[in-house]
Nucleic acid binder design. Sequence first.
DNA 1: GCACTAAGTGTAGTATTTACACTAAGCCGA
DNA 2: TCGGCTTAGTGTAAATACTACACTTAGTGC
Lengths: 230, 230
Amino acid sequence: MSPYTYEYARAALAVDCVVFGLDETDLKVLLIQRRIPPFQHAWALPGGFVRLDETLDEAARRELAEEAGVTDVYLEQLYSFSSLDRDPRERVVTVAYYALAKLSDHRIRAATDAMGVGWFGLDDLPKLAFDHAHIVATAHDRLRGKVRYAPIGFELLPPRFSLTQLQRLYELVLGTDLDKRNFRKKILSLDLLVETDEVETGVRHRAARLYRFDRRKYERLAKQGFELSI
Amino acid sequence: MSPYTYEYARAALAVDCVVFGLDETDLKVLLIQRRIPPFQHAWALPGGFVRLDETLDEAARRELAEEAGVTDVYLEQLYSFSSLDRDPRERVVTVAYYALAKLSDHRIRAATDAMGVGWFGLDDLPKLAFDHAHIVATAHDRLRGKVRYAPIGFELLPPRFSLTQLQRLYELVLGTDLDKRNFRKKILSLDLLVETDEVETGVRHRAARLYRFDRRKYERLAKQGFELSI
DNA sequence: GCACTAAGTGTAGTATTTACACTAAGCCGA
DNA sequence: TCGGCTTAGTGTAAATACTACACTTAGTGC
């Protein structure tokens, strides 16, 4: 009947993903509505049990695609959560991941719309299943801590972005206001942004110049010991 | 016979610990010699399987005590490793931790001596079992990244230490030389070290003043948003 | 062409970081 | 006790980075 037997009791192993997305005005988190107990109908992080033939990273990507329609995102392991009572059914240890999705990418928007998932502002989350609120808070902490020392913010923006968009990103993630001139000076002095010949469209004021992040150059410098700091 | 049966296959879940210790001259890692296959007689990280009635943190502390005699150390979760073939026996996912031990504490020294564990310089590691070399490298990266932004270096030093000891710690962890006067200026300007009325003993030159870290004050400031940077 | 909106730009003052070398203190052995 | 050895402990000047701050420019829409 249940063909898998072991000499010692084993916890179930799961992954859960906190997907961040950047709106025009907000940093958002992707949530799905549970269809089955426990916490039926409650909002929760996309995730599920790890199979024996996949790594944790693979499980996280699979669950993201299956449950939320999210593919091709920046994904990084966050932390493993193991409270004895975090799942009322049985002992489940979950390895949490966080992902950064380009909400500007229509494929992401379309796929998540089709799956009926919700994007919630970080300060506007519904009650979450399990310990998922705690996981989201941990992910936000990690994002805040990492965004200044690694070029991960760009994963939330379209490939070409204005400096104002970039500044707003940092302001939202860090939770502080930044001075426009000082921010531009600093970010441009890194010499990692390339001015494109494109400008913003669809705005009813002066259009902003668009830049792209020179990842090649960053990788080269990083290999030589360069440490980003914003 | 094997009383634990499940509907789906489950990976075994383990913890492994990278314990760092600071010597007079070196940053060391604690290793144990395996008594059973696989990798019998090879050096490995202390660790073992997680029980159903304990969290990952608890499992890590239990294994540290059982296998290495190490207790009362700073312990923090590092990363979870899940390559399909990392254990030749079967699928094992391990949650790695790193710990910072005060090698100056005679209890640590005595207990690890009694257990026959080895302390190896980071640049002088033997061949390690499983993917443990990879785990050690990851732990060193994390320590290097964290030591400048969190007051964790003190966990490697005795409660009272000289500024030279502290500087050597940073130099060993970061892998760079630091200027003595600039280091002292910066570290003292944080106003988190308290000068004690004690000095170094047992040296055949001028004895250095000993300081202690004012953890209370740090916690207070941290709660108010202060961010350490060294 | 006027009103509106956000883009884009410079400077001066302050704080931080860097580079750098000698004197002071304590121990030891002759 | 004196001389030699070893590490502790200290200041300054130049360069760099950070901060605060306000107006002009470009484009859209009425």
